[in-house]
Amino acid sequence: MLMPRPVGSARESLTILSFVALGLFALAILTLLAADAWYLVTHRIGFADVARILNAPEVRRSMLLSLGTSLCSLVLVLAFAIPMGYALSRYRFPGHAFLSTLVDVPIVLPPVVTGISLLAFFGTGIGMAVKELLRTAHISLISGVGIVLCQFLVSVAYCIRATTAAFDEVSGEVEDVALVLGCSQWQAFRRVTLPMARNGVIAGGIMAWARAIGVFGPLMVFVGTGPHVQVMPTSIWLELSIGNVEASLSIALVMVLLAGLALALVHRLAPGRQWT
């Protein structure tokens, strides 16, 4: 719905500038997305060709590995982000501001630095001990485990932010009433707080999942590009590096579709729509 026009020429020009900026940015994003499809069309690569490319065993394997590892990291992300978001939202304690800033670090850190930091960590005494422990359990880090670790570290911060905001929206008074009406703290959380924060938590999970499935830099550094650790972003890069633009664009289209689906879901769960 259009808002009433503000009074005064300065505000009118601000309105025009805002809409021009918005329009240009939307155009840029749509152009970039359309360019992928346009390239395929102009090179006479139809649906059948894209399907054939995506059906190739190595591409299929990378898509399945992407899906599997990103879902595993999503489970891990939710397991950490829900209690951490609750703690940051509900309690004020010494070091709260420091911890709140610290959890944002992965958002501003270049992802490749996460990979280098992981390499550095597993080169230290503690890291070597952890690696040795994993080895005795026949678990290698150059596998889905390493991929999940990278995806988790890069994506968890997005979910913590979302869950913190979601729990902030739930009034402490509602929890208080639940406690007085017979709930333990855990019951109040499960029956009242979490259901009320549900949309924000799910949206945070989807954002984190979309971020996880697109992780590339840390994987290149930490787990490499071996056939058994190829996920969609590494496949795109590998195909591109051997000049197979069609294959890399086909995989990229799948990622665009997944990202679009994730965004549509997040907007459907936008806060403010929940209890109105």
């Binding site: 009034s171 008074e173 509602v174 208080d176 009433v177 639940a178 406690l179 007085v180 009406l181 333990s184």
Partner: peptide, 16 residues
């Protein structure tokens, strides 16, 4: 609180 046998109504009603 749950063991005190108290019924509580806050100002905002705080319905679920």
């Amino acid at each position: 609180p749950r063991a005190r046998r108290i019924g509580y109504v806050p100002q905002t009603s705080a319905l679920f």
